[in-house]
Design a protein around this nucleic acid. Structure first.
Length: 236
DNA sequence: AGTAAGGATGGAGACCTCGG
DNA sequence: CCGAGGTCTCCATCCTTACT
């Protein structure tokens, strides 16, 4: 009888949670940062509600999801930003070229909308996220050379733009998150989340349907051009 | 809307047999 | 002895049904 490495056992159990298409579909859906009901996720994953209930139980028990019950509804969301980062990092390992090809025009349109702009848990991603990250860097507001960090000018810019940077726990102020469509890092962390929240609250961008895709509004194009010098063509 | 129980199904691994 | 192929068993996943 050989003794097992506890760390290997824990890693295998964590990996097993990801190693199911239904659970993976749920985790990817929950990357939008919102709380979903069990029935919404069941429809999304294409399985029966009872089947999804079992999967949710495992994901909650495994610490990947947090649940909240309201009346007869069971809302679930990703447990925290670290789980979101893990899911996004794993998704980034899947080459876009190896991804399933769109089966029809609708899927193709949805895919291009996601590539154009989307939320990645609680921050902006896709070409929109990259354009904002590049603009912040070009203006000396974000430092990428030594790992993502806001410069003093960057802190001042967020303050002047009225975007509050509330530190919670040990979450870094700025962090790089690998973008799975652009294959480049975009801004995440407290600053990335605050910027995304501000963009949605002020109507710079709006969500498209029930997916994670977001669309920059005319007001958003003006704001991004005036504040960061982002040209609208960079967002298309 | 959500959960629990029970049964069906399919994949993976273990085991066995047989031929070269 | 070794590899191929067949069979069996276990387990994860899914569904239907009944129930809260």
């Amino acid at each position: 009888m050989t003794t097992r490495d506890p760390q290997a056992t824990a890693l295998a159990r964590l990996a097993a949670l990801f190693a199911d298409e239904t659970r993976a579909a749920c985790l990817l859906a929950l990357l939008d940062g919102r709380a979903w009901t069990a029935s919404e996720l069941a429809r999304h994953a294409g399985v029966a509600a009872s089947t999804l209930s079992e999967h949710l139980g495992r994901l909650v028990a495994g610490g990947l999801l947090a649940e909240e019950r309201q009346g007869r509804h069971r809302y679930v969301r990703l447990a925290d930003a670290r789980v979101a980062q893990l899911v996004e990092d794993l998704a980034a390992q899947v080459s876009p070229g190896a991804a399933v090809r769109p089966r029809n025009l609708r899927e193709s349109s949805a895919g291009s909308a996601m590539a154009r702009g989307r939320t990645c848990y609680d921050h902006l991603a896709g070409r929109l996220g990259i354009a904002v990250t590049d603009a912040l860097t070009a203006r000396g507001l974000l430092e990428q050379e030594t790992g993502f960090a806001l410069t003093d000018a960057g802190l001042a810019w967020f303050a002047s733009a009225g975007i509050g940077l509330e530190r919670r726990g040990r979450r870094p102020l700025a962090r790089a998150c690998l973008d799975w469509t652009e294959r480049r890092p975009h801004l995440a962390g407290v600053a990335g989340a605050a910027l995304c929240r501000h963009a949605l609250d002020t109507g710079w961008c709006v969500r498209i349907g029930s997916e994670r895709a977001v669309k920059v509004t005319a007001a958003g194009e003006r704001a991004l051009r005036d504040l960061l010098g982002v040209e609208s063509m960079e967002l298309r």
